[in-house]
Structures are given as structure tokens and as C-alpha cells.
């Protein structure tokens, strides 16, 4: 098997300064793709770039805010020119603002929807314009098991992640004639800075409910993202792929 099957391809990964996004950046780079690392935190994003370069990969940093429609369209166009194309988009940027709904501030609702859902729309819109012309592309969005199971204190997050599934399915139908596949990953509890915020007691309860008996690792999610980007995965589209240690079986 070709050890670098994504050689010559360009991938934009949002929120790639840490956690799952960073691991996906590493994975796609190891498969040969050039990476555009997006993150609002410049130091974190640039660290991902440096780490990729240290391993012999190629990466650039792009610090746009996924919530700014006009900026995203402009920056993606710029990246396409700079890198010579864009075959892969990973909508990974995401935030949480947990609170039970009766006490949730309007801003906390709006901010989570803006980053997680509207941010993905903004990026997918810009990237699909490139991909349709080339009749090739892979769009992957990070949903969550919470879209299926719900979670106390996460109405905003769960709604945003469930929204991504509708976006994924509809966009998959729109872009299928152009050989652009669109899929979502729905990770369960993964060891990242985001899930570190879960209170210890609650975390133990969740782990107890996971049949595989442990949280997942960002590298394991990245492995799945890498698989979906392979040339041989071109018949998978409009799917939500669960990666949760058996916590939710669909």
C-alpha cells in the first residue's frame, strides 16, 4: 500500500491547534497531505505547524475566525491560491458553554451555534466552491455522541452537533454528482482539553457506561478521519460514523 496516499492533496483543518483537530492534522500530514492549520489561538496553531514540519511534513497557519462569513470565504480562496488547491476540509473547530437551559445565557447559546454549526457552514460553503470545480473533495465534520444521547447542560452543544448531521446529509446529496463526499464523525468521550472540563464524578460515570471501559484518544478519531480521506473511501458519503467505545450503538 502507498504509505502516502494523500500526496499532492491539500487539507484545511479548523481548530487544529489542539486536541482532535491537531491529531487529524498530524494524521493527514503523515498520509502525505499539505496542511492548512486553522486556529483562533495563534500560538497553538503555529505549534501544530512546527510539529508537522519537524516530522518532515508541510503546513501553513491560517488564523481566521470560522464565525466570520466574509473572512472565511476570503481566507479559503487565499489558501486555495497559496497551496494550489484544496481537496480536504475538516470542520473540527468547536466550543462548549455548558449550562442547564433555564439558566443558559442567550450569548452562550448563540456562541456555540456560531462556532460549531455556522462555522462549519461558512467553511463548507467556501471549500465546496473549490471542490465542485475540481470534481473531487472530502468534507468531514466533527459531530458528537451528544447529538444522539443528549447531555444535561449541553442543549446548545448538542443542538449544534445534531445540526451538523443535517448539514452533512444534505450537503452530501448536493455534492455527490461532483465526487465530493461529505461525512460526519460522532466521537464519544475523548481525552482532550475540552472533556477535561467535565467534573470528575460525572466523568467516572460516563467511563463506567463505555463498554470498552475507557475514554477514546484523539489519535483514534484522527485514524478514522484519515481513512475517510483515502482515495478508496470515495463511496462513503452522507454518513455519521460513531467512534465511542460502544457507548452508543446507533
Amino acid at each position: 500500500m502507498d504509505p502516502k496516499p494523500l500526496t499532492g492533496q491539500r487539507a484545511l483543518i479548523t481548530g487544529a491547534g489542539q486536541g482532535i483537530g491537531r491529531e487529524i492534522a498530524f494524521k493527514l500530514s503523515s498520509l502525505g497531505a499539505s496542511i492548512a492549520v486553522n486556529d483562533l489561538v495563534e500560538t497553538a496553531g503555529k505549534e501544530t505547524v512546527n510539529l508537522i514540519e519537524a516530522k518532515g511534513g508541510s503546513a501553513v497557519f491560517s488564523g481566521f475566525s470560522v464565525t466570520d462569513f466574509a473572512q472565511v470565504q476570503e481566507e479559503v480562496k487565499k489558501l486555495e491560491k497559496e497551496l494550489g488547491g484544496l481537496e480536504i476540509l475538516v470542520n473540527n473547530a468547536g466550543i462548549t458553554r455548558d449550562q442547564i437551559l433555564p439558566r443558559m445565557k442567550f450569548e452562550d447559546w448563540m456562541e456555540v451555534i456560531a462556532v460549531n454549526l455556522t462555522g462549519s457552514f461558512n467553511c463548507a460553503r467556501a471549500a465546496s466552491r473549490v471542490m465542485v470545480k475540481k470534481h473531487y473533495g472530502r468534507i468531514i465534520s466533527l459531530s458528537s455522541v451528544v447529538a444522539y444521547l443528549g447531555q444535561v447542560g449541553q442543549t446548545n452543544y448538542a443542538a449544534s452537533k445534531a445540526g451538523l448531521i443535517g448539514l452533512t446529509r444534505s450537503l452530501a446529496l448536493e455534492l455527490a454528482p461532483y465526487r465530493v463526499t461529505v461525512n460526519a464523525l460522532a466521537p464519544g468521550l475523548i481525552e482532550t482539553a475540552m472533556t477535561e472540563k467535565i467534573p470528575e464524578g460525572r466523568r467516572r460515570e460516563i467511563v463506567k457506561a463505555i463498554p470498552l471501559g475507557r475514554p477514546g484518544r484523539p489519535e483514534e478519531v484522527a485514524e478514522l478521519a484519515g481513512f475517510l480521506c483515502l482515495p478508496g473511501s470515495g463511496y462513503i458519503t452522507g454518513q455519521v460514523i460513531h467512534i465511542n467505545g460502544g457507548l452508543f450503538l446507533g
Binding site: R129, V132, K133, E174, P177, Y178
Partner: peptide, 15 residues
């Protein structure tokens, strides 16, 4: 042709 195809044509004309 579909509205998506028409849009694709516009993208190609832009280039």
C-alpha cells in the same frame, strides 16, 4: 440541468 450544475458553470466561468 440542475441548479447545482448551473452554479458549477458559473464557478467555471468565473475562472
Amino acid at each position: 440541468i440542475s441548479s447545482m450544475d448551473l452554479w458549477e458553470l458559473v464557478l467555471i466561468m468565473e475562472d
